[in-house]
Design a protein around this nucleic acid. Structure first.
Lengths: 145, 145
DNA sequence: TTCTATGCAAAAGCTTTGCAAATCA
DNA sequence: TGATTTGCAAAGCTTTTGCATAGAA
């Protein structure tokens, strides 16, 4: 699947007159090795642990390209910084976030997905994407309090 | 309704051992005069236009208190800064955002609200609040392209 | 009178950007 | 070869914070 993603990214870059560089491949590889959300700092840490040399600036720039190409999704938990997760090969999902311990649970829900399409139709909007974050308290944190 | 909000805020402050200052009243007044979302800069601009003297720091600090008290909601459109809107006296609503012109349409949907409660129950979460932003293209912007 | 709040400016985070040197096609 | 990309450090934004002074209860 990582190979498929690489092909798709290469196509995207070509269509925009951009180049597939060593750094971009390195970043894509790392992004598609993590099966959870991560922030820029996480990604840099993982890259450096593997002795892979990429600058912070390139990480930011490449993540933008990956988002534009549709391979990666930017997720906002309202923390004042962005998280990312690769979406290629996955169904879209939303997040349940524990306000106490920060745990994030992914879920997919067709009722909500469908309903959003209906709402868009009602308002004449053409739907592109959505972000749904539900904040609350996870079972463990409820027990503790 | 503004008076009710003021009473509720005063109660909240008292319960926390905090004081109802001139600045906090000024900010609350302004927040409850706007019937749309706004960012900190917008609020400061409105205050200064009315010759009301409040520092940026107090605006940030008071908005936090208003959010904690449940009178105001913080809204995140993924722009790297926060928007706010007063919610006292309103039903909770979500947002449809046009990616082209930036227009924001509010909507309320009971199907989605209910479904979220069910999802939380499934995962054992205690629901606190949620944020749902749907991004797409509004009717006008679709015509243009 | 005592404890909290304000304002200011500095600092803190995250992200973007200008530019010279390096790299891809 | 020519255009794009990289890395670095500086700058840009939003938001937070330390501290002396002012103000609420």
């Amino acid at each position: 699947m990582k190979e498929e993603a690489k092909v798709k990214f290469h196509k995207y870059l070509k269509s925009k007159g951009l180049k597939l560089t060593r750094e971009r491949i390195t970043i894509l590889d790392q992004v598609f090795s993590v099966h959870d959300h991560f922030d820029v700092e996480d990604l840099l840490y993982m890259l450096r642990k593997d002795k892979k040399q990429v600058s912070r600036a390139s990480v930011y720039r490449t993540l933008s390209l990956l988002v534009e190409s549709g391979l990666v999704e930017k997720v906002d938990f309202g923390e004042g910084k962005a998280y990312y997760e690769h979406v290629f090969g996955h169904l879209h999902h939303d997040h349940l976030i524990c306000k106490s311990c920060g745990k994030v649970v992914q879920f997919e829900d067709q009722v909500i997905e469908k309903r959003q399409e209906e709402i868009c139709k009602d308002y004449g909007f053409r739907l592109d994407y959505h972000t749904l974050n539900i904040f609350g308290f996870c079972p463990e944190c409820q027990k503790e309090s």
